[in-house]
């Protein structure tokens, strides 16, 4: 009989849950302009992962590549252990708020219901159950009262919460958020992080890109520093160091004193 403590077996859960995201030698180019240069990266599941990097580092491109919206020049991406095409339902994507036209004549509930469209396919319409799920998601972001408003009437923070509700309504295992904290109030930021922690406790994975280094250090488990290539990735305390930040942000960043004060010039 072999003692388990001497020859530890990998825990059963670790064996059955593959990494949330695996990139192998992934290159993405717009035209002939290389945006992501041979990325190789493995991200564990059930974590909140921050994606940091300066403007033009390819953060949005990486997120879009993970959801399969960008063609790869070379390499592969596996999501939840499978090619993204076969797990689309399980990946929710939250684009940047400024990417859409908020004067569009849609109600808050209409937008949240869009999270269900992936499951519905081309021809089916949202059912009563879809509406219930969407309403529940709105409750979670504390916007049920405003469900019939036109989306342009909301504040920036509320708009971001609507986007998050839409992702929650998708009931996905992996959440990708592009700059969720751009131009929003601290209340919204707290609400969002609370919800993301809740997601993590349910075993879901969150990957979010941001400029806000402070909140990343406070709230994330893991970090990926990106500047066209992977500069570093791993637990926050390993990545969030002056040398890594300096080589990620280059001249856009000044690290002052004991490396706790950062000045980022966007």
């Amino acid at each position: 009989m072999v003692d388990r403590t001497i020859f530890p077996q990998p825990a059963a859960t670790e064996q059955s849950t593959p990494p949330a995201i695996e990139l192998l030698d992934t290159t993405v180019a717009y035209g002939a302009h290389v945006v992501l240069d041979h990325l190789t990266l493995t991200l564990p599941s059930a974590q909140i992962i921050g994606l940091i990097g300066p403007n033009g580092a390819g953060k949005t491109t990486l997120l879009k590549a993970i959801v399969g919206a960008n063609r790869l020049l070379s390499g592969t991406i596996r999501v939840l252990g499978q090619p993204v095409q076969s797990v689309r339902q399980r990946v929710a994507y939250v684009p940047q708020r400024r990417d859409v036209d908020w004067s569009f004549p849609l109600s808050v509930l209409d937008v949240v219901l869009m999270g269900r469209y992936g499951r519905l396919g081309l021809w089916r319409r949202p059912s009563k159950r879809d509406r219930e799920i969407a309403l529940h998601a709105l409750e979670q972001v504390r916007l049920s009262k405003r469900r019939d408003c036109q989306i342009g009437e909301l504040s920036g923070g509320q708009q971001q919460r609507v986007f998050l509700a839409r992702a929650l309504a998708q009931e996905a295992d992996l959440l990708l958020l592009d700059e969720p904290f751009n131009g929003i109030d601290t209340t919204t930021q707290t609400v969002i992080f609370d919800l993301l922690c809740q997601q993590r406790s349910q075993g879901h994975t969150v990957l979010l890109s941001t400029h806000d280094l402070h909140s990343v250090e406070q709230n994330c488990d893991q970090l990926v520093a990106l500047n066209r290539r992977i500069v570093a990735s791993g637990p926050v305390d390993e990545v969030f160091t002056a040398p890594v930040l300096r080589s990620t942000f280059g001249s856009q960043l000044a690290v002052v004193g004991d490396s706790h004060t950062l000045i980022v010039n966007k």
């Binding site: 959801v67 919206a69 689309r88 994507y93 569009f104 869009m114 469209y117 319409r125």
Partner: peptide, 17 residues
């Protein structure tokens, strides 16, 4: 619903496949 989706948020539409 598809036409509204691609009009409002093409990025999400692409993510939905």
């Amino acid at each position: 619903k598809e036409l509204v989706l691609i009009s409002f948020d093409p990025a999400l539409a692409a993510a939905h496949g």
